[in-house]
Design a protein around this nucleic acid. Sequence first.
DNA 1: ACGCCAGATGTAAACGTTTACATGACGGCT
DNA 2: AGCCGTCATGTAAACGTTTACATCTGGCGT
Lengths: 339, 339
Amino acid sequence: MKATIKDVAHEAKVSVASVSRALNGVGGVTAATEKRVREAAARLRYMPHGAARSLITRRTNTIGALLPDLHGEFFSELIRGIDQQARLHGLQLLVSSSHDGLDDAASALRAMQGRVDGIVILSPRLDARFLKANLPEDLPAVLLNSPVTGAQHAVLNIDNFAGTHAMVRHLLGVGHRRIAFIAGPPDNYDAQQREAGFRGAMAELGHDGSPVVVAGDFSERAGYEAGRKLLKAKLRPQAIFAANDMMAVGCLQALKDAGLDVPQDIALAGFDDIPISRYVSPALSTVRVRIAELGRSAMGLLSEMIARPGTAVGAVHLLGCDIVVRDSCGAHAIGSVHR
Amino acid sequence: MKATIKDVAHEAKVSVASVSRALNGVGGVTAATEKRVREAAARLRYMPHGAARSLITRRTNTIGALLPDLHGEFFSELIRGIDQQARLHGLQLLVSSSHDGLDDAASALRAMQGRVDGIVILSPRLDARFLKANLPEDLPAVLLNSPVTGAQHAVLNIDNFAGTHAMVRHLLGVGHRRIAFIAGPPDNYDAQQREAGFRGAMAELGHDGSPVVVAGDFSERAGYEAGRKLLKAKLRPQAIFAANDMMAVGCLQALKDAGLDVPQDIALAGFDDIPISRYVSPALSTVRVRIAELGRSAMGLLSEMIARPGTAVGAVHLLGCDIVVRDSCGAHAIGSVHR
DNA sequence: ACGCCAGATGTAAACGTTTACATGACGGCT
DNA sequence: AGCCGTCATGTAAACGTTTACATCTGGCGT
């Protein structure tokens, strides 16, 4: 059996109250007794029972993270950012990932009840109705990349518009005119924004009123297929902008398989800046999303909400992103070398 | 204020005991009252308080994961595997990553006290003494890639010996004789095993009694430096085997920068099979470690220990790994093409 | 008609903490 | 000398559940 505070009290010959005071350093206790208590606790290997403590203090020092079935770098970077910031505030992290359906998410949410002080939700598929039904309204929550908007929760999104605009501007600046776009899954909020951003930028900056857009789903395979499809067009695009890096990588393979040289024959760009982008050849130009930063910011917002409940944070916050120019977009053919 | 079980009891006009029974489906309650209770609970948006529940049931349905400051794919795959299996058992996951020092780890461990039913620890630096001091002995624990061995906890390791042996055998089989090794950080258990495995395999299978081994630290940069160093030797190795993929990638760059062709002039192999390995050119031959599988197995072991406390699981379990042959080791120069 | 049994329901204790409040001791001030 | 304030310490209530046990109800067998 594990030692409880009572055992320590008995061992140190004081009351449980004094043990609590001594161990929590709240004062109101003699240096001598504090020492006695600490020694007794050490001797018994006493560790306070977290659940019991949170029950009475109504603080768990834990925040929850509700994530969809994510693979790879995005997931780990996000967790990393959240966890870093959480650690800074002395908070732990209760993760629930890989939930696909709404039921999954709902039950994960209930299971977190009473175990977390706040929650970070990344779920492009959850709508306002679901949240209203399953999220206790007094639980601080930060929504990531979510279309939901309401004063209820804070929302933190990637600035997809700024990113696509910057990349389109760059591609045009390098001299490409006919730019094609490979879109992401239609039900994904980021994908929607990136496509809209691309169309907007082309309408605004380009001379092409209705640019070519082919469908995709963020997968490498979809990128490959899209690449083949684009090559079959009568008027081959001068540049291809994929809605994420994975598709750009797939597309790159398609272009190579067709015997084309990138960026000589055709330019290519992606979005996300996953690590792989740096290692394909030619290295992929892309829009950098600082994912860990996204996690950190979310966590920062959340701890703010926890510290000062009732503060309105309903605004939608945007996390900027910048473009990183490597070899695949042809900029270096005319300029400096940059690795 | 959040609704408690008392509120539901009042709303449904029954006692708290009946509410508990109705909601937990343990029987001993009329269908009619169960319905009344469920409706009352739904009306009040009642969700049971996790901490209160675990306090009395002595079950948290949560397992902890204590991880070092890990980047990238390894981290996310591991969590993924653990979480998948945990979900299968209806368990949640309390993550504490990015802790560097021993103090960090110790305080993370205390914070988990009373919040988890078991724990998975990946920490090549923690020794038996630390564990004895900071881990409650009746808390089921699974150690990953740990040199610690004891009946106290289960240990699950990657079979680094089998992996290095297989790769050395393969390289020799392709015809390479002078094989050099880039080692990992000396204080890392996996690194130690891989180096020992390499030396053992060379002594056993090769004709070279004392093969060249240069130092490294698992980083891309260290791989680059090691590559340069190896090229300066009077007798250039025919193949280089890096203790992990990241160093292999760095080394590849060094070889390219020196104007060498891989695998024509020199062969290269890594260890881990991180996603990047497939995307560099030439694609990297490597030893595949099924990381998600590692997480799943650990979690499986753990839930076994939780379900049947007292069962001895002190044995060291090994997770096998197989080699994946791509272009960088020169096998394809003499055989079929394989992507 | 009586008692009994099964099953539904309620009462209250227990889990391990924190903390408001009561108690008691001691020292300094007038 | 008496009083009061300060401060260490103890007692007990509270947090929100689950569950052993007591109580009550109704139906059934004799």
